[in-house]
Simulated scan of single mutants.
Amino acid sequence: MAMLLAQTNPDGTPLDEWIDNLWFNSSGWVTSGMVMNVVYAVVGLIAIFCGYFVARYLARIVSGPICKRVDETLGRFVGNAIFYSVMIGLITFVASNLGFQLGGLTAILAATGFAIGLAFQGTLSNFASGVLMIVFRPFKVGDVVNIAGVTGKVNEIDLFTTTLDTPDNRRLIIPNSSISGSTIENISFHPHRRIEILIGVDYKADIDATRQTLQEALDLFATDTIQGEGRGNKVVLANLGSSSVEWKVRMWVASSEFWKLQESLTGEIKRRLDRAGIGIPYPQMDVHLRRVDNPDTSVPMRPKIRPARRPSSMQDNLPYAG
């Protein structure tokens, strides 16, 4: 301690006396009001710091039940809205109590917001579309959808973009404005889907035999068929095409088993038709050639034009006199 008191400042005054002189000299410009302002500022920063954790806690408390019972995307949106609302309100309250004039700041923020709105029209359009999708919920996380010409499973719905995972494991990020401005197909919305396979058979095949063969293929999947009103399976004579008789084979199945059963049913139909000797024709064109022997109707030959021969002259044999 003695060594500390023995330390001197550049003027040679002992350290304790130098501190006393510094406080005595600064007492003229350090006022009590300035000290109170510093105290208020420190209290305001502490309030904002504590309010940050309070806002996160409130957002988690409110969004948790919504994510579990209603929808995960809606719960995230509500949680973020509560968090930012609490923080903006707290910062505004602290600033007003510290004596900041918020009237001019509001006008500046309004002008800045107008300029930003003009510069980010596309981004704001994505934001508005994201809010509408979260509120009306045409699809949710985990649904298989066809949006903006892309088919995939919804991984996340954000305020600006929507993330899809394709069947071949690609991650696609689509702007929300592109989704809201196009047709949205929610493939996995209903628990049941109908398989419909279009088949064309030869005109020589018997209609009754063809129907029986196709029905036998359907009966093989009776345990996988969803029964009920408007459900079940059916063989329909659809159309008499240009080169084949067209049939439709329909079967209602669970949405989760759609692709597997569609492939199995298609293969079984092909095997049954082959066993029954019923052919599946393909479009073809017959070209008929006819020879014409009548010389009157033959195509006239194009006359040949020979180049004109240069006339001979005695002047060609004369020597050049130039």
Score class of each variant (00 low, 15 high):
M301G: 12
D202N: 12
T73G: 15
S244M: 07
V299T: 13
G149P: 14
Y320R: 08
E17L: 14
V141W: 00
R171K: 07
S63N: 03
G142A: 03
G75V: 01
P138N: 05
K140Q: 09
Y203Q: 12
A107D: 06
A217Y: 03
Q121Y: 12
M36F: 06
S26G: 09
L218K: 02
S178E: 13
G103N: 05
F120A: 14
Q7Y: 03
S264Q: 12
W29H: 10
S129P: 04
I46D: 00
G200N: 05
S32G: 08
I280E: 13
S298M: 13
G64Y: 09
G279D: 12
A222H: 11
L5A: 08
R60G: 13
T297E: 12
K140T: 08
E263K: 10
M87E: 05
N239E: 11
S256N: 07
V141P: 00
Y52E: 09
L118E: 08
P307G: 08
R211E: 14
A81L: 08
I197T: 14
Y40E: 04
F100Q: 01
A119E: 11
Q284D: 09
L240Q: 13
Y52P: 00
G149A: 07
I226T: 12
A41R: 04
L198F: 11
L109H: 02
A205Q: 04
V86M: 15
M314N: 11
